[in-house]
Write a protein that binds this DNA or RNA. Structure first.
Lengths: 208, 208, 208, 208
DNA sequence: TATGAATGAGCTTTCATTCAT
DNA sequence: GATGAATGAAAGCTCATTCAT
């Protein structure tokens, strides 16, 4: 299941793209290789050829996701930022990341299949790394959480908050007729950053 | 796929319980009817007999989830509560609900299979209902969100925040050695309620 | 891959029969489950249902073969027989066994697939048992081979000699126009028994 | 499927060697071209390029086998030999051949795939030739079998007897701890030659 | 209710082979 | 000669469901 071909044709990338789109919409196990091959316009065998099997595609996608996530967080740390600037910058960066790589991020943030050992291991491993980065960021932000437990509560909570909109997007757009453009997401980032910084109380005060 | 709920043997309930456990751990599509029947200690045919098919079990579970969620939210509205009391009560009630019905709630909150029409329709329908309830609650809470868009941002964000711990639980317990007891969840509720009420700023001030 | 269903329909036996016929004619790996299911007039899934997979059928056939072989050898030991009577009786019994269960015996005697672990283990295990029985028979026959090595030479040599006709049968019948009836196999047994007892020298003398 | 034998690189021979090793251990159909190409350290396409397909390799190996067998038998006929010398010489020559070309001989003697037409035809054709040679040898040996049927019984029986050790070798070496060296095979030849010449009766008398 | 044999469509993966380079 | 991407068919197996009992 090793994926280390030096030169990969278009097919490789087409498979990744098609899979990302499909896995983002429906659960990994409910997407068939036929469907992927069809959407990517490649022969079914190419999936095993390039990725060693269906799970290999997911691994590739997850590796991309974790690299993306790590890069985004690291890029959000600017020494001279105030606490408020830091949060806003991070929120904007994360939302940008999600908007630019929606499928990959939806897959990365979603419940991954625990019954595929390689995926499970990767998830454990990377979650660990993320937690460490999270701790480093907290410290650098000057936010030194008094009790360690609260760190593993607030980190995931923040991330879940940010991604939640994108998982509910389709449903929301069926109920409210909103246009999801740059303006919307600017407002979105600010709303959540304010909420995260000052809570519903501060948020309401601001909007009085 | 109508299910006559009047007279149902133990088998019915055993199937629901087994399925909830399995669906909570792994995606709906990756759980087989054989696995369910095995865990529930019933004959495979009983699944079609009682639920009209595998999807029927999920529908049953989802109906239970939405009833649960609705009941919990309604029970959280106490006229005499202050804003802070309201939020804390609601957070405690929701966390209690999740702890008492973890499997059902994990399934309900998770990405449901969009490629099963009946499930999709139910989801759309109930999400709609939830949004209405959310609006009612907001108003009753005295929190009248100035811009409607922000309502559909904050609602899901809050829910995602609360459930996020339970979806990450297994991974967290592998990294930090924490005991998830009553005390822990008391602290958990308060941490998130404070965060939601006063933001990270207020939260840090409180813990000084 | 356990095969221990108490009551098995006709399908079970039809699968065994069809497989025996096919495996006897062509190598295990070159016979497909579709071909088997077709010949046995059952649904493909029945193979996994009853035998846990294609290899399970081979295991079933091999178990039958080894039981058959063991029973035949044991039944050939009559205390009062002379050495010559013993050999002739054994040869006749073995040839009868092969004629009555040609397919199973051809499979059992042929080169079995070593790359199927379960088959390999069974083969090792049963070959061991056969060797022990062979030793017992040798002793009971009053034929106490002076050097142990010669025992594992002569045993397999004798068996190979007896089965060789059946593996070459199709080719022989295309060259010589012989009718393989009871009379033929009587002569066949006697020829080989004489060869085994007195060698080509004694055999030629007898036929002078 | 014609193979131009004039100019062939190392690759050609490496493919034959690798295939011989693999086909000797496992059935033709269970060995894949990838496995062969891998072991031979050549590109997969080279197999089609040189041999026109997987079956072409087997044909090449079989042709080598039949040439070998024919040569060995012909070389065993020495006018001045006594009957006993003849048999012993032939047995030693055959065993030498098998020891020097074990893989090729195991493949040649084993049950060949009947469902590959080209192989089947070759087998029929060459078996025919062998039978003729067998008859010639019989006559030259002064062993003029009274009844023709007995010729096609004794010929294959003798060959099967000689090869049987090599097919069982791996299993035997797991049960008895024997070293298969020159000394062993000298004894092996003599044992079988004596058995073939004088039968078990004469054999036992000799070893008294 | 409950059983377990049976169905047929579907799954992922692997096969030998071919092709353009 | 040699490469490796690409092909299409077929492999073994599993799926949810149905049926007669």
């Amino acid at each position: 299941m090793e994926v280390s071909k030096k030169i990969q044709g278009d097919a490789f990338e087409r498979i990744v793209d098609a899979s990302a789109e499909l896995f983002a919409e429906n659960a990994f196990h409910s997407v068939g290789v036929r469907e992927i091959a069809n959407k990517a316009n490649v022969n079914i065998s190419m999936i095993s050829y390039y990725f060693g099997g269906k799970a290999g595609i997911l691994i590739e996608i997850l590796n991309r996701f974790f690299d993306l996530q790590l890069g985004t967080l690291k890029a959000s740390i600017i020494e001279t930022d105030t606490k408020e600037q830091s949060i806003k910058r991070m929120f904007h960066n994360i939302v940008s990341m999600i908007r630019n790589h929606t499928n990959i991020c939806l897959i990365g943030f979603s419940d991954l299949p625990n019954n595929v050992p390689e995926v499970y291991d990767l998830k454990i491993n990377k979650t660990n790394q993320m937690m460490e980065i999270g701790n480093q960021i907290s410290t650098k932000f000057g936010i030194d959480f008094c009790r360690q437990e609260q760190n593993h509560i607030i980190g995931p909570a923040m991330m879940s908050m940010l991604i939640s909109h994108f998982t509910h997007k389709n449903f929301i757009s069926q109920i409210y007729k909103v246009e999801f453009n740059d303006e919307y997401y600017d407002s979105y980032c600010n709303t959540l950053a304010d909420l995260f910084l000052f809570g519903i109380t501060g948020f309401l005060k601001k909007n009085e």
